[in-house]
Computed example of a mutant assay.
Amino acid sequence: MGLKKALSLGIMTAALGLALIGGGTFAYFSDAVETTSTFAAGTLDLNAEPTTIINLDNIKPGDFGIRTFKLLNKGTLDIEKVILHTNYSVINQVGAPENTDDFGKHIKVSFLTNLDKQEDVIYETTLYDLQSLAPDAVENKWQEWFEERGGLKAGTSDNLIVKFEFVDNDEDQNQFQGDSLQLKWTFEARQGAGAAK
């Protein structure tokens, strides 16, 4: 082995030895703390009372029915909107010819009031047109400073009044004799935007 190589090897060995000795004798103070966090999701729990809002038998053009029902937020989160989805089916009288018009076009629905939000008519249209709409059942469109805002806070409820009317259009409506309309309303609760907690 040459002198240069031996000298280089000796310097590297000495440096390694010093590093090991220095590393072994280095001392310092230390401390540690442990933290924990919990993330618990809230719940949306919308209920209606009663779940059968109205049953009208033997109706004729001009007849109507007014009913009150309640939407309740039994969850732990505030509900920002309650979207109403409408679906119905018409059952023709057995043996009668098929209708040339949709019975739902002749049934007018009026959300007369949301007693907890306002006193005016909230919404008024036919069941046929309501199918293509998605109104907010707990919205307060005409909010005054002293009135409740839209939405449904956790643990609260809204009382709604609704009117259904078989509209008399002063025309021949004989095709609807014996028919029945089965209505299904689905109220969809939606949360509000996220917020700092």
Results as ranks from 00 to 15, higher is better:
N87C: 02
N169M: 08
L56E: 12
K60R: 11
I53S: 01
E165H: 12
S110A: 12
I66G: 04
L3Q: 13
W142S: 04
L115K: 09
F29E: 14
G75W: 01
N140W: 00
Q118P: 02
A154F: 03
T186K: 07
I11C: 14
I59E: 07
F103L: 14
T36M: 15
D78W: 04
E139M: 06
Q175D: 06
T35A: 15
L181R: 11
P61M: 15
A154N: 10
L7T: 14
A193C: 06
Q177M: 12
K153M: 06
A6M: 12
G75M: 04
D78H: 08
I79E: 01
V94Y: 12
T76R: 05
S89R: 05
L152E: 12
A189R: 00
L71P: 00
P61R: 14
K141S: 01
G17E: 15
E34M: 13
L16W: 10
E144H: 12
A32V: 11
K74S: 11
I91C: 08
G192S: 13
L56T: 07
I59P: 05
T76A: 13
H85N: 08
G23F: 11
T76N: 06
S37I: 05
I122L: 00
T51L: 10
A15N: 13
D158C: 06
L77D: 00
T13A: 15
N55K: 09
I122A: 01
T100I: 11
K105S: 09
P97M: 09
A154L: 14
K108E: 09
V162Y: 06
N55A: 07
L46G: 04
A137P: 04
K70H: 04
G155V: 13
D136Y: 00
D102L: 15
E119C: 06
L3N: 01
Y28P: 04
Q143G: 12
T51R: 04
K197T: 01
D129Q: 11
A48V: 06
L77Y: 02
Q177H: 05
G65N: 07
G151N: 13
V109T: 05
A27G: 14
K141G: 08
G151Y: 03
F29W: 14
E124D: 05
V162S: 03
T86A: 13
G151H: 03
G192E: 03
K117L: 02
M12I: 07
E124K: 05
Q93E: 07
T186W: 07
A15Q: 14
F111Y: 08
G10T: 05
I54P: 02
Q118C: 09
A41F: 00
T36R: 12
N140A: 04
K81Q: 10
T43V: 11
I54Y: 08
L72S: 04
L3W: 00
N140K: 02
I161R: 11
D31M: 09
L181I: 14
L71Y: 01
E148Q: 05
D102N: 11
